[in-house]
Design a protein around this nucleic acid. Structure first.
Length: 392
DNA sequence: TCTGGGGTCCTAGGACCC
DNA sequence: TCTGGGGTCCTAGGACCC
């Protein structure tokens, strides 16, 4: 027999806490990490002192500034947060090999069957909290439960510096204490949709048959809702089969000049294809995204008959999709492009299929990309022409 | 209010195949 | 003449999460 025990570790106000730790003079102050006030953008994270003013993540930065003009507004230092994150993940990995990192500030630990080795999971959780605070100076919140889903809900429950333990047998009664909105997977729209059917709580949701929920919300959502309100893990974590790589840019001000769009698409395409190569992935599907000044958004994709090998190829495809969709009048707020259905590459087999021209271009692109990463402005167009070995 | 950037998963229609 | 059922792939859009 096996006892299932999972821990979910969630770092508290992570970006803001790292900034306060790196700059102790910000301790106790409302710290808001995100876009620069006056610019387009949102709050990425904020300290608990900032939340007192009504500020929360994803809020437009202009609104946050209005709520708290005296706040400490800081830019996102992603590289730094990844550094601290890696430090914490290493520490967590010392407790169990069953570590799954979910994002920069979250991880699951599978402690199933480790009781004899590690002791009571509640004590392990306390020890982890103590160690993380000792090594990094940061607080975390931890949920302990018989399933991942409940462990995650548990880590949310007593934030910050929280600990919540859901014992086997308490699954259903635990979820009954939670508001629907706090369930992972129920957002604004689903909440409103549930409300139109008179469903306002977990216990009310429990009164519906699976067939009724399917009629209301469709098969997948019904399966999720039916299980979740009974404390049963709906089991939705990445299958890991394929994924996507993409980038996008919101312009500081809306643009009408297609040349600016082309420049952005070329840069984004370069970084996407570079990442694809770094992880030795393969993809045949190019994606494109366009957002106009009225915030209306369209996406498009095109599946090629061969793998994308060069940034040029992704760029040309994205550019073609842009030209098919833009009416040449509307102002453009954002463009993006990327690769979908990226799968693990088969390495050398694929490599032999590259044409010599592709291979040469690929190498030039990589050199250009590395240089531009170092802040050196390179005559990209000329280098790429040289790669063509043609004209001018 | 004036709305980032990176993702995942689901739906639904049409093409195409057996 | 009016017509199956299932499966997979492609595409666009949308909800949701951190």
């Amino acid at each position: 027999m096996s006892e299932h025990v999972y821990l979910h570790v969630d770092m508290d106000a992570f970006y803001a806490s790292v900034e306060q730790r790196d700059h102790p003079n910000y301790l106790g102050m409302p710290v808001i990490v995100g876009a620069r006030p006056g610019n387009r953008g949102v709050v990425s994270a904020c300290s608990y002192e900032a939340r007192v003013f009504g500020i929360h993540s994803a809020m437009p930065i202009s609104q946050a500034y209005r709520l708290c003009p005296a706040g400490v507004f800081l830019p996102v230092r992603m590289a730094r947060y990844h550094e601290v994150s890696a430090q914490i993940m290493n520490l967590l990995g010392e407790f169990t090999p069953g570590l799954t990192q979910m994002s920069v500030d979250e991880a699951f630990l599978d402690l199933s069957g480790t009781r004899r080795l590690l002791g009571d999971p509640a004590d392990v959780a306390q020890e982890i909290k103590r160690r993380v605070r000792g090594v990094t100076g940061l607080t975390i919140s931890v949920g302990v439960a018989p399933s991942r889903f409940l462990a995650k809900l548990g880590s949310e429950k007593n934030k910050p510096d929280g600990l919540c333990i859901v014992q086997p047998g308490e699954e259903a009664s635990f979820v009954a204490t939670l508001p629907l909105r706090s369930l992972w997977g129920i957002g604004k729209k689903m909440l409103a949709s549930l409300e139109t059917h008179g469903i306002r709580s977990v216990t009310q949701l429990r009164e519906y048959e699976r067939s009724e929920l399917t009629a209301f919300f469709g098969k997948a959502a019904a399966h999720y809702l039916y299980n979740v309100c009974r404390g049963i893990d709906p089991g939705l974590y990445g299958s890991g089969k394929s994924h996507s790589i993409s980038g996008e840019r919101t312009f500081a001000a809306d643009v009408n000049d297609p040349q600016i769009v082309y420049g952005a698409l070329l840069e984004i395409a370069s970084s996407c294809v570079f990442r694809l190569r770094e992880e030795r992935g393969q993809s045949r599907t190019a994606t494109f995204k366009l957002r106009l000044s009225d915030f209306s958004t369209t996406t498009a994709s095109r599946t090629l008959d061969h793998d994308v090998v060069t940034a040029e190829e992704l760029y040309e495809t994205a550019r073609a999709l842009f030209e098919e969709r833009w009416d040449k009048r509307s102002s453009i707020r954002l463009v993006g492009c990327g690769l979908a259905k990226v799968v693990k590459g088969k390495g050398s087999v694929q490599h032999q299929l590259f044409s010599q021209n592709d291979e040469k271009r690929r190498q030039v692109e990589e050199a250009v990309y590395r240089l531009s990463k170092q802040g050196l402005t390179v005559q990209r167009a000329r280098l790429l022409r040289e790669a063509d070995g043609s004209e001018e």
